[in-house]
């Protein structure tokens, strides 16, 4: 049996990008968030760029081998979990805030981060892309 969760006061500001704020019991939560974060020195976006698959998004997760079988016994001497107040500023990128009990939570986040700066002393107009230039950058 699972315990009862009691929270008197919850103050939450922002919940975004595949995050979950669940009040009450749940059975299964699956949260996924794939982020391509590009920061550029100049405000420039070249249309459909970045739509191809970066390896980090396709990569399968390593599986943790669990050899031992664990028989778990839970004795709930007190059936209640009680919290007076929760003050939350942000829940982001496939994160979960859960008041209540659950069976399975599965969350996965992939973040590809790229920063592009122009060379010092080169004017903005010259640092804009030329049609023929295409370089491959990935790690």
């Amino acid at each position: 049996m699972k315990r009862l969760s009691m929270v008197q006061w919850l103050n939450s500001n922002t919940v975004l990008l595949s995050s979950v704020l669940q009040i009450g019991d749940s059975r299964e939560i699956n949260a996924r968030s794939y982020v391509l974060a590009v920061q550029r020195q100049y405000e420039w976006f070249g249309g459909n760029e970045g739509e191809g698959a970066f390896p980090v998004f396709a990569r399968s997760l390593p599986k943790l081998p669990v050899s031992a079988y664990v028989q778990t016994r839970r004795l709930n001497e007190s059936p209640v979990l009680s919290v007076r107040s929760i003050h939350l500023i942000a829940v982001s990128t496939a994160a979960v805030v859960h008041i209540g009990s659950t069976s399975t939570i599965d969350a996965d986040t992939r973040i590809k981060h790229i920063r592009q700066l122009s060379e010092p002393n080169i004017p903005f107009s010259l640092s804009l892309p030329q049609a023929a230039i295409r370089i491959t950058k990935d790690g």
Binding site: K2, R3, S5, V7, S19, D25, A31, S33, F54, P55, V56, R59, L61, R74, L81, V83, S85, I86, H87, L88, I89, A90, V91, S92, T93, A94, A95, V96, V97, H98, I99, G100, S101, T102, S103, T104, I105, D106, A107, D108, T109, R110, I111, K112, H113, G139
Partner: peptide, 27 residues
Amino acid sequence: IYLTAVTSSAIFLIGDADVINLSSAFD
């Protein structure tokens, strides 16, 4: 409880759970 942020496949749980599987990959 005062929390600034719960992010990138993290969880904040008040309750019981059987299985929790979280992953995040930064490239």
